[in-house]
Design a protein around this nucleic acid. Structure first.
Lengths: 241, 241
DNA sequence: CGATCGGATTGACGGGAATCAAAGACATCG
DNA sequence: CGATGTCTTTGATTCCCGTCAATCCGATCG
C-alpha cells in the first residue's frame, strides 16, 4: 500500500514554483514550465499563525493551496460543540476540493503554516488542457481516502492506549516518511486538546495515556512537545498493530 | 453538499450497459456507445450471495465492478480479529480502486448483490482516451471521502444512541435519496453484528439502542429487518443533528 | 525574582458501554 | 409438529473512559 505512495512521490521530481519561490511537490509537479509560469501570476504565498482558519465549514473556498510547511487540521463540529478532527495534512499535500464549492470541513493551521495559494478557476482551466493534473488530484484523493479509512478503524475499534500510540506513530511516519531506524524523535504538532479531538477522546485521557507510555519507558517527552521513541517496535505494539 | 451529488447524478442519464443488459449509472455513464460496446466484450455479470467476498484485504483485485443492486460492505480487521466496517456501497456505486493494486480493505456482499465486472486494464486504457472518465472517478472518490469523514465524526464523538440513529438515517437516505416525506420505511441490509462493526459498538449495545428507539416510539421494527420511521425529524434529533 | 496565565497533569468519582451469560424469536428441516 | 441452529434480545456485572476539580508546570511578563 505504501509502496504505491512512494512510487507516486518518486515520479514527482520537485518543481520550482515561481510564486512560492521554493521547490515543492503537490499538484505543481504535473505542470509544464510554461504552465507554472502562468500559474505564478495568480498565486500568492501566505504564512499563517497556529489557529488561523483556512476554510470554514460552509464558507465557499475559491482557492487551492499547496502546503509548503507545517500541519493543517481538518475538522467537523456538531451543533452542540463536540468536535472531531477528520484529517491532518502535511507538506507537500494539496489543500482544496476540486470542483466542489463547499467543503464540509473546516481547515485550520495546527502549527505555523506556509502555503502557496491560487484561484480555483485557473487550475480548473488547466485541468481541461491537461488530464495528468486531474490524475494527480485523483491520486491524492485516494490517499486521503485510505488515511480516513485507516483512522476509522482506530476511532471505532481501538482502546484509548492504542489510539494514543497510533497517533504518535502517525506523526513520526509523516515527519520521517523514509525512516528505517529503530528510534525516532519529533515534535508534536498540536495541543493535547487537538490530539483528543483527533482520537475521539478527552484531553485528560490523552494525558493519562501519554504518562503511561512514559512510565513504561516506551517514550520520553521533554517540554511537553518533543517526543523521543527509543524503540519504534514497542510503540507499534502498543498501537495494536 | 448533497446538492452537488444530485447535480452529478442528474447529468448522468442512465446508459444501457450491453454486458449487464440493464440500465445503470456508475462509470458507464461517461462512455460513448462505441466504448460501451467494446467494454461489453470483456465484462461479466455476477450474482453474489450475502457474505460472498469480492476482494480480500491484500488480494490483488484486477477487476472493477458497477453495483447493479444490493449493498457491499468494506471492512478492515485488526490482527486480533476486531473489525471495523469503513464504508457501505450501494447501487449504482462503483467498486474498485483506480490505479491501485492492493485495496487495503476487504469487500463483502452484505445483501444479495448483482455486479457488472470488467478488467482493470480495459478501463484504464479507456481512461487514457477519455479524460471525462477519470473525472467521474474523481467525483466518486470525493464522495466516498466525504462519507468517510462524516462517519469519523459519528465514530469519534457520538454516543451509542446517536450512532444507531445515525445509521438508520444513513440507510433511509440511501434507500430513498430523493425522499421529502416525513415518514419512511425500509429493510435493514445487514445483521446486528454488521451494524455494530459499522458503528464501533457491540451487537448487544446496538440491540439495546434499537429497543430504546422502539419503546420511545421513534421507530417500529417488524421481523427484525423491516423498519418504519413515522417521523424522520424525531430520528434525526436522536442522531444528534 | 515573584506574579500571572494557559496548558498539562493528576485525582476522585460516576456513568455508559463492554463483557459474560441466559433466554427468547425465527427459520429451516426432518 | 417439534427439533435444531442462528440471530437477537435481555439481564447482571465489570471496567474503561468521561466528568469535575485541584494542582502543577512552563512561558512570559513587570
Amino acid at each position: 500500500m505504501d509502496i504505491h505512495r512512494k512510487d507516486v512521490h518518486n515520479s514527482e521530481l520537485p518543481v520550482l514554483c515561481q510564486a512560492c519561490e521554493s521547490r515543492h511537490r503537490g499538484v505543481c509537479g504535473a505542470l509544464t514550465p510554461d504552465q507554472l509560469l502562468q500559474l505564478s501570476k495568480y498565486s500568492t504565498r501566505r504564512t499563517l499563525e497556529p489557529g488561523a482558519e483556512l476554510a470554514g465549514e460552509s464558507i465557499q473556498t475559491k482557492t487551492y493551496s499547496n502546503i509548503i510547511s507545517g500541519v493543517v487540521k481538518l475538522s467537523k463540529m456538531m451543533a452542540d460543540g463536540r468536535q472531531q478532527i477528520v484529517g491532518l495534512q502535511f507538506a507537500p499535500d494539496f489543500l482544496g476540493r476540486p470542483f466542489r464549492e463547499e467543503n464540509g470541513v473546516s481547515a485550520e493551521a495546527a502549527t505555523g503554516v506556509k502555503v502557496c495559494s491560487f484561484p480555483k478557476n485557473v487550475i480548473e482551466r488547466m485541468i481541461g488542457e491537461m488530464p495528468e493534473l486531474e490524475h494527480k488530484l485523483l491520486e491524492q484523493t485516494l490517499n486521503e481516502l485510505d488515511e480516513a479509512r485507516d483512522w476509522m478503524l482506530t476511532l471505532g475499534r481501538k482502546t484509548a492506549g492504542e489510539k494514543v500510540a497510533s497517533f504518535l506513530l502517525l506523526i513520526s511516519t509523516h515527519a520521517f516518511p523514509e525512516n528505517e531506524a529503530e528510534s525516532v524523535e519529533f515534535d508534536l504538532p498540536m495541543s493535547r486538546m487537538d490530539i483528543a479531538d483527533f482520537l475521539g477522546l478527552t484531553m485528560e485521557t490523552v494525558s493519562r495515556q501519554l504518562t503511561k507510555l512514559r512510565v513504561d519507558g516506551v517514550i520520553r517527552i521533554v517540554n511537553n512537545r518533543h517526543v523521543e521513541v527509543p524503540d519504534i517496535a514497542r510503540l507499534s505494539d502498543r498501537a495494536g498493530m
